[in-house]
């Protein structure tokens, strides 16, 4: 009985390792292919990494058989990491793009006036 469990879970580990190595080859190969935009390449690379990470977490880290609380901790940490990325991304992505109505009128002439004064400084 225990010998059977032994060999079967060892076999699963071998299969998972082979899958991980295969995905590594795929992701390196995908990096040489131009999908039209660098962000598509990035998304593909991150997706493959996520599949690999899920395999490691479920099988090598035994989350499949653990009490669910361990998986909850793991997923919670990822969700909060997502929040940490999300808000600064909103901030950096919308700087100077979303200006309140009242300020918009003043912002334009002020920027135009400031431009010549800033000319000697190296342009941004």
């Amino acid at each position: 009985m225990s010998e059977h469990v032994h060999s079967s879970s060892a076999r699963i580990y071998v299969v998972v390792l082979l899958a991980l190595l295969f995905l590594t080859i795929v992701t390196v190969g995908a990096a040489y292919v131009n999908f039209g935009s660098s962000s598509i390449n990035l998304i593909i690379a991150v997706l493959i990494a996520t599949v690999k990470a899920t395999l490691v977490a479920l099988f090598f880290m035994h989350l499949r058989h653990d009490p669910p609380v361990n998986a909850i901790i793991f997923v919670t940490s990822l969700i909060f990491l997502g929040l940490f990325l999300l808000f600064p991304l909103i901030d950096i992505g919308s700087r100077d793009k979303v200006v309140p109505y009242g300020l918009r009128m003043q912002a334009q002439p002020a920027a135009a006036k400031a431009a010549p004064a800033a000319a000697p400084a190296p342009s941004h």
Partner: peptide
Amino acid sequence: SFVVWGHHMFTSGQSQLAGAIF
């Protein structure tokens, strides 16, 4: 508590949109 930190940064140069959300 994890999604309100930007209210320390209303005058920091953070974007108006992020400020409004926070």
